[in-house]
Amino acid sequence: MQARTVALISYQPIILEGLIRTIGAEEQLSVVFSGICSPDSHAMAMQLKPDLFLLDCGNSDRGIALISRIRTSEPAAKIACFAGQHDVEHAVRVLDAGAHGYISSTCTAEEIVSAIKPVLDGGTFISPRMAAKVIAAMRSLEKARAEAVQRRLSYREEQIAGRLMLGLTNREIALDLGITEKTVKHYMTALFQKFQARNRLELALALPKSADVSRSTSLN
């Protein structure tokens, strides 16, 4: 069986040396690149198109920016992040940026190898100590995004919402837009449901800032 190729990038030489020894000792894995994090290292690693990028993400967003660059250049790339903390928020940002694995630096050499194998096989790995919390946080993030998309206003909804915020009645909105009052009522009903508002005041308070009155210009 041909060895899987791995590119190692770290901010710290001592961690990079440890990863080289750990991955290099595995017959089924081959380190094709190792380097300290820099624009040149990123470019060289991506040119090699390894089966896996194993990145030292440290405790900041530096690694997250690199993940995003790799995903933009190589959408199918498999990425695992080697992190020095048990931070659920950091793990969520790393995985949301496009990584497939979040490995704690407190793990053993054997655990690192066990962690990257499911990533290489197309799966996801999260250090067991924090997996449950990270999965719950990711689900909450996806739910929030889905709700935001659901509440996104169409162009006509923005027109009507803008006029609502100006205090216009349904009849006045209809006259201003050159549509029927029945059509305005239809859109108003949809807006009430979308934002779970019980009256016009609650709706006006719940509307996003994108429905600014500056958008409320007549089409006539």
Rank of each mutant, 00 (worst) to 15 (best):
C37S: 06
L66K: 07
K117H: 14
A76D: 13
M46W: 10
F53Y: 13
F125A: 06
D56R: 05
G63Y: 10
A80N: 02
V134G: 07
R129P: 01
L52P: 02
A136T: 12
V94E: 13
T106R: 11
A115F: 03
T108C: 04
K49P: 01
I116F: 04
H90N: 05
S34W: 12
M46A: 01
G63K: 10
S105Y: 02
S34M: 08
R71I: 08
H86I: 13
D51V: 10
A132F: 06
H42N: 01
A65K: 07
E74F: 05
A43H: 05
H100Y: 10
K133W: 09
I116H: 08
A137T: 03
P39G: 01
S104D: 15
D51C: 01
E74N: 06
K117A: 00
S34E: 04
F33D: 09
I67C: 09
Q47P: 00
T72F: 03
D40W: 02
A83Y: 05
P50T: 11
L52K: 11
F33T: 14
D40P: 02
S73F: 02
H42G: 00
M130K: 01
A65V: 14
G101D: 02
I126S: 01
A83M: 06
G123H: 09
F33C: 08
C37D: 13
A131W: 10
R139Y: 01
G123D: 09
H100F: 10
A136Y: 02
G58D: 06
P118H: 08
G63Q: 15
P50L: 10
A83H: 04
I135N: 05
C107W: 10
A132S: 13
I103Y: 01
R69Q: 14
E89Y: 03
F125K: 13
V94L: 11
A115I: 13
L66I: 08
R71N: 12
S38I: 09
I103G: 06
